[in-house]
Design a protein around this nucleic acid. Sequence first.
DNA 1: GCAGAATCTGTTGTATGCAAGTCCTTGACG
DNA 2: CGTCAAGGACTTGCATACAACAGATTCTGC
Lengths: 230, 230
Amino acid sequence: MQQSSKRASKDEIIQLPVPPLLDRLRQVVLSGDYPAGTALSETILAQEFNVSRTPVREALKQLQAEGLVEIRPKVGTFVREPSRREIVEMFQLKEILEGLAAGLMARRGPVPELTKLEANIEASEEAAQNGDSETYARLVHEFHQLIVDGSDHRKLAEQYRTLMNQLAYYQRLVASTVAHPGRISRSVAEHRKVVAMIQAKDAMGAEWAMRDHVVTSAREVATEQHQANG
Amino acid sequence: MQQSSKRASKDEIIQLPVPPLLDRLRQVVLSGDYPAGTALSETILAQEFNVSRTPVREALKQLQAEGLVEIRPKVGTFVREPSRREIVEMFQLKEILEGLAAGLMARRGPVPELTKLEANIEASEEAAQNGDSETYARLVHEFHQLIVDGSDHRKLAEQYRTLMNQLAYYQRLVASTVAHPGRISRSVAEHRKVVAMIQAKDAMGAEWAMRDHVVTSAREVATEQHQANG
DNA sequence: GCAGAATCTGTTGTATGCAAGTCCTTGACG
DNA sequence: CGTCAAGGACTTGCATACAACAGATTCTGC
């Protein structure tokens, strides 16, 4: 009896009652409520979450390792704003990570994610025709995530997640800017090509189609951003 | 007077007297003195480094994020041993990271690292002819590091470093196994090809030459390992 | 009015105490 | 002899107290 309850707590139910402090703090930073440069006081955060400073401090150090905050010794912790250079670098990493993922997925053959990708493309096309940019943005995000998940590569997925976390605030900025009308159909076509390559088990073709798509998207986003700033 | 000493401490001399605890603890884990699975008691480490448990605890959490140790809640901290699957995954990441680095370096044109690479190859050839496997191993490590440094990509370099840290203990294992006699000359040839592509500013060629080299090396290492175990 | 020094507030960094949990060992019992 | 339960020794997790430092502010002398 005691054993059964213990086993249940070791599976996954233990995480449901209260999410770890680290995740809650990460959500605070990623929520965007605090703009870049905002100071995050350990004391205030501790009161906010009804814990002492010690666990808050440990979590903040983790977030610093993830690149989400910057801890200036003896001064304080601040929400970090990636530099232009860092953003470029992160998109380059995004390119090769997703490229590897697509190639690996092509090698795996028929997996559940492939079916979801096909459904995703159909839904994307429909959203594009209806001009539903919000659903379309969600589907694009889902597409890239399906590629990563379908690669069945844990370390890749982990690095990809931290990378996207660092790009999250930037993504928010560009999400508001509406893409060129022609861009959407071209983007869907690129998605189609990636899926086709995976279906054909053409690993190299899938990798390059994916990388090409990421590069094109990033360039588009950069010009949008440039136009918005200029 | 007091001000001058303070300014000196703000430049770079402050880090020389005593390296940060995190780095010292990382060295402890990477040194290999404690085999995988060894328990690292916070109390003992604290006494060892003449500090309290709190900073030790923070550093250990960082090392867990880096994948070097595993913290089992309420049980203890242990030196982590990557699974076979993780090693395969990390070599795949190594492949695309170094590939990207080589490609970026090709795009950069003449940089100091390129000259060092040429010198490295000559030295490698000499070490190979003399059968000096120890220097050769060191030069191989330097070659890969030069590629990464020459890419001038900070985020890549950072991820590469943590990746190689996780592979460090594994590298130690295979470093003892002597490579096939024919492998060394082939490896040097692959290095030559990478450098040639970079000199020719052929980014794609450099990327693929580098990736091919990494894949070949990894496969060689894997079979060596397999033979040693079987 | 102004330059510079002392002060004061708020922050982080560290040490320590205590509670809670895990695991091993020892003992009792069938 | 085997099995299971209770106890103890060890660990981590958290809360709290204190010291040290950075930055802003105020005060003083001119």
